[in-house]
């Protein structure tokens, strides 16, 4: 549906998209896999449960970390989530996807723990995020005159950068991970679900109980912070050369 919406990135994203998005949309594939997995789970197949855990455990931990004080508590929250999933499997009615259901349980449990331990929340999680704030630093645009709202400091092209090149640099990877880890919780949740886990926009909204407008405001702010981390990394590279 959005094939014609992105002419500007066509040349770039074509290669990326074809490598991980076949004819079926990603969500179709996920849905089909889930039906099969759910049937195996209900038959009590242990391997199926291991598979479910493997598939989501890392992202669950990362998200839980945004809600609770420390790693240990995050691990407890996710362990409790899995126990609740096991108990609830028989009652799960597929009104949402299995993934949405699992993440929903975790968010619920994490929030519950987070409220109880509020005093100990890491600083980044306490910063409230106003959805009306600008995603991009306003000082990068002309604030007055004929060119108001146009770039004063436009981004410099990342000419020869490719995702592969960025991923090959440990320093770039660290910079991006650091940017993600320090995102306020509301931004981190959307970035992890949508971009890391590849969850449908609609499903993310359902999961986090936010509107699609909210989702894109938050997602864009999160992506912008990661973009800035890459920009800073590349500027550092240039000054070294």
């Amino acid at each position: 549906m959005n094939a014609d919406a992105i002419p500007v990135t066509e040349s770039f994203s074509h290669r990326m998209v074809t490598s991980w998005k076949p004819e079926l949309t990603q969500s179709d594939v996920v849905a089909n896999e889930e039906i099969v997995l759910l049937a195996r789970l209900r038959q009590g197949e242990e391997g199926a449960f291991d598979e479910l855990v493997m598939r989501h455990h890392s992202a669950l931990i990362r998200m839980a970390m945004g809600h609770v004080a420390d790693r240990e508590v995050a691990e407890e929250v996710v362990q409790d989530t899995w126990l609740a999933v096991i108990e609830g499997l028989g009652r799960f009615e597929r009104r949402s996807s299995l993934r949405t259901w699992v993440f929903g349980i975790m968010i619920h449990k994490a929030k519950d723990r987070g409220v109880r331990e509020k005093r100990h929340l890491p600083f980044s999680s306490c910063v409230s995020v106003d959805d009306s704030d600008e995603a991009v630093d306003p000082s990068r645009f002309h604030q007055s005159g004929e060119w108001t709202g146009h770039w004063a400091l436009p981004p410099q092209p990342w000419d020869d950068q490719t995702p592969e090149k960025l991923l090959a640099s440990q320093q770039a990877v660290n910079a991006m991970n650091q940017a993600i880890e320090t995102l306020p919780r509301t931004l981190r949740d959307v970035l992890i679900l949508r971009d890391v886990e590849g969850v449908d926009a609609k499903e993310v909204c359902e999961n986090l109980k936010i509107t699609e407008t909210n989702l894109y405001v938050r997602l864009h702010r999160a992506r912008e912070r990661v973009r800035r981390a890459v920009e800073t990394y590349l500027e550092g590279q240039q000054s070294v050369v």
Binding site: I6, L166, M176
Partner: peptide, 23 residues
């Protein structure tokens, strides 16, 4: 340039090597 960079970030984030966590 800006939109291209955001697209690149979106795609790279999906491919970032994560520490694989285990229960």
């Amino acid at each position: 340039t800006y939109v291209k960079q955001i697209a690149m970030v979106r795609d790279v984030v999906a491919l970032l090597p994560n520490t694989v966590e285990e229960p």
